[in-house]
């Protein structure tokens, strides 16, 4: 059984454009059903929160949204077009997925923050890197820091700003605050709030009670054939 709650921006109302929709999404691995008939509508500038027990398929939904995996059945639209008609590389630059336990690559923090520029064949914008580091309370000289010397919280923060070097349309956060202390959580929340203030759309997976409690609108989706609203603020 899968449960998901979606928190939607209060100002969005019903007039907001759906940025991403999922219709009757199934995901199977061999004979095993991971997701069944998932339906959801992600409004522009909204903040959806997906919660549920471990192993219920939350990450799978986000990975399908990011097109890291393809559904076995169902449709998905992005920006009013079939999501699967976009070039996967271009799509993933607009719908950015941040892993639960992200891996930093290369040797230094700079290797990670240069990467988004390198894959776009653009010269590195250090001012942008400094701005992002500042947003997560890291000084500019962190760029030269060896990734092996970073704490868990610092690694998570670097991974997160790596997804935001070029601002995506949708940010998918897979339990990014799990295991973080209160200070690190606050920094991550500040970064996400800043992204949202600039018109960003967020989908969260979380087990954090305070994050769930902070939701304005909650919806429940039951894996299988049911989708039902459970709470409105």
């Amino acid at each position: 059984m899968f449960y998901a709650y979606f928190r939607i921006n209060e100002e969005s109302g019903e007039t907001m454009t759906a940025l991403l929709t999922m219709t009757d999404i199934d995901y199977r691995v061999g004979e095993r059903k991971i997701l069944t008939k998932i339906n959801l509508r992600l409004e522009k500038e909204s903040n959806l929160m997906v919660v549920g027990p471990s192993g219920s398929g939350k990450s799978t939904i986000l990975q399908i949204m990011a097109r890291m995996i393809s559904p076995s059945a169902g449709q998905m639209t992005f920006d009013d077009h079939d999501a699967f008609t976009y070039d996967p590389m271009v799509y993933r630059r607009r719908v950015s997925y941040c892993f639960q336990q992200p891996t930093l690559f290369g040797k230094t923090v700079a290797d990670n923050l240069n990467f988004p520029f390198e894959i776009r064949n653009q010269s590195v914008n250090e001012a942008r890197q400094h701005e992002l580091l500042d947003q997560v309370n890291l000084s500019p000289d962190y760029l030269s820091h060896d990734i092996t010397g970073l704490s868990g919280g610092e690694r998570q923060r670097v991974a997160l700003i790596r997804n935001l070097v070029f601002v995506p349309d949708i940010l998918l956060l897979d339990e990014v605050t799990t295991g973080l202390d209160t200070d690190n959580k606050a920094i991550v929340h500040g970064l996400v709030d800043h992204y949202r203030d600039r018109g960003g759309t967020v989908v969260w997976i979380t087990h954090d009670e305070s994050e769930i409690a902070a939701a304005d609108d909650l919806y429940e989706v039951v894996a299988g054939k049911h989708t039902q609203e459970v709470r409105h603020a």
């Binding site: 990011a66 890291m68 590389m89 271009v90 993933r92 630059r93 950015s96 997925y97 941040c98 892993f99 992200p102 891996t103 690559f105 990467f115 988004p116 390198e118 894959i119 991974a159 790596r162 997804n163």
Partner: peptide, 16 residues
């Protein structure tokens, strides 16, 4: 595997 997935998720090509 995880590093390759991270790069793909950041919008890198299969080559990159």
């Amino acid at each position: 595997r995880q590093q390759v997935l991270e790069r793909l998720a950041l919008g890198a090509s299969v080559h990159d």
